[in-house]
Write a protein that binds this DNA or RNA. Structure first.
Length: 470
DNA sequence: CGTCCACGTCTAC
DNA sequence: TAGACCTGGACGG
């Protein structure tokens, strides 16, 4: 869900579903969440929401006890409020539904007291989302590109002397101190509208706007030009809001998403180019990348990122293999053998730093041994498989409340994997596809089920392959 | 089965 | 400037 427009749509959603509803009781946090508890003892309260850039603020407001009107507190007593600031990470969203149970990945839950009982859940399957209780908008984030446009523009314009603006425009756009609300798809769309190459310096894009802002009165500069870059940082996200759907949410197939998909001109489009920026985030663009584009070139021979990574992996695998062999060599076997092996490792590691000599290898193996022992010790200290009761489950998200350890131990995915292995259970297949590879569990053909997003992905991958072959 | 990729921050060499 | 933090879908072998 999560760039400026999605956060705003989310806040609207909350206001819509919580209108005229009374909440009460404990605010329940999931056991896996590392975010703070919300202590709030008002027996009755309402919920409203607002957004600013990539944050949503929920405001809880205490309500008088309507059932016990006679016992009402002093009339001049003001209702208490509590603000909670949410960041959505990569997958956060709010959901509102009947309180039969909690949906998967619901991490903070507010319950209504009126019938039918409902829940407002902060749902976030990747758990990159955060919340701060009793907080205000983060100070290190700038004005909202959507709803504080004049301040946003001013903030950027007054900061052009900062070194940051020497960086490529596409990277600066993700800096939330200045572009609060812009994310990966918006940066692509905005740059594309003006055909600005992503890797020109931010200053070169923004400096001309200083004159423009000051100009105002004189020079009838023929006003046919469209909106400038900073205006687009406001208008493009506003367009998303005005689409009326839920914004970017490829898993939410159906009309609202296809409207968004149709709206996208650049991001993830098969006819567009893409590359990783200096922070390894994919930037989609057309035309030239610009002078500051990252160069993949190293010394001498050129290697593609993928190939390089693949080779590194192979090296690592090789090292691992050799080290395993080493492990089986008894302690007092002659040094010569080990030196030969260390040379082998060195050649496997190629460009990697220093020659790992024998002592280092010994140290490594000791470390590994210690880790191994530690792991065993940990398990004996209450992290044992039996404590988790995960035996019948195959993934973290399949765990039921009763399966969580009560001692506050965090259940991690890798932990589950380890335990499953110990218990001798297999992971469930990641895909439920039949022998023909056509159907999933629901009897939907894979082809029909394919989202637009997927198709594009496939197409662009094909395109990439084709162009690589040239 | 393993690898890559995803709407975003953060901190630690 | 890596990596860590996470889950899960697509895809390749």
């Amino acid at each position: 869900m999560p760039e400026g427009p999605e956060l705003h749509l989310s806040s609207r959603f909350v206001n819509f579903v919580c209108k005229n509803r009374i909440f009460g009781g404990k605010i329940i946090k999931s056991l896996v969440s590392r975010q703070p508890d919300v202590e709030w003892d008002a027996p009755y309260y309402t919920i409203s929401a607002a957004s600013r850039g990539k944050e949503v603020k929920l405001t809880l407001t205490s309500q008088p006890d309507s059932k016990n009107d006679l016992l009402k507190t002093a009339p001049n007593e003001k209702p208490r409020t509590l603000d909670i600031i949410f960041q959505f990470g990569m997958s956060g969203k709010f959901d509102f539904y009947e309180a039969g149970g909690l949906v998967k990945h619901a991490h903070l839950n507010f319950f209504t007291v009126d019938e039918p009982k409902m829940v407002l859940s902060f749902v976030d399957f990747r758990r990159f989302g955060k919340w701060h209780v009793g907080a205000d908008w983060s100070e290190d984030r700038g004005p909202c590109v959507l709803f504080e446009y004049p301040k946003f523009r001013e903030n950027v314009m007054n900061s052009l002397d900062k070194l940051l603006f020497n960086r490529p425009i596409c990277e600066v756009m993700l800096n939330q101190q200045y572009f609060n609300g812009i994310g990966n798809y918006l940066r692509a769309e905005i740059l594309y509208r003006l055909k600005i190459p992503p890797f020109v310096s931010a200053r070169s894009v923004l400096e001309p706007l200083v004159a423009k802002t000051a100009d105002d009165t004189d020079q009838p500069k023929i006003k046919i030009e469209g909106p400038d870059f900073l205006q687009l940082c406001n208008l493009v996200p506003l367009e998303v809001i005005n689409l009326g759907g839920t914004g970017y949410d490829p898993k939410e197939r159906g009309e609202s998403y296809s409207a968004f998909d149709k709206w996208l001109q650049c991001y993830y489009q098969p006819n567009m180019k893409n590359m990783a920026d200096h922070n390894k985030r994919t930037i989609w663009y057309s035309g030239p990348a610009g002078p500051m584009a990252p160069t993949v070139k190293v010394t001498g021979k050129k290697q593609s990122r993928k190939k390089k990574k693949k080779m590194e992996m192979e090296d690592q695998a090789e090292i691992k293999k050799i080290k395993l062999e080493e492990k089986s060599i008894s302690e007092n076997e002659n040094l010569k053998e080990m030196i030969v092996r260390s040379k082998k490792i060195n050649s496997a590691a190629k460009d990697n730093v220093g020659v790992p000599h024998v002592e280092e290898m010994k140290k490594e193996s000791r470390k590994r041994k210690m880790k191994l022992e530690k792991g065993i010790v940990e398990e004996k200290n209450g992290n044992a498989a039996s404590d988790f009761k995960v035996c019948k489950h195959t993934s973290l998200t399949d765990l039921k409340l009763s399966d969580y350890p009560t001692d506050g131990t965090r259940v991690t995915r890798s932990r589950v994997k380890v335990i499953l292995k110990e218990v001798g259970l297999k992971q469930k297949p990641s895909r439920s596809v039949n022998k023909n590879g056509l159907q999933n569990k629901d009897g939907v053909t894979a082809e029909n089920k394919e989202t637009n997003h997927t198709k594009i992905k496939k197409r662009s991958a094909r395109g990439k392959r084709a162009s690589q072959q040239k």
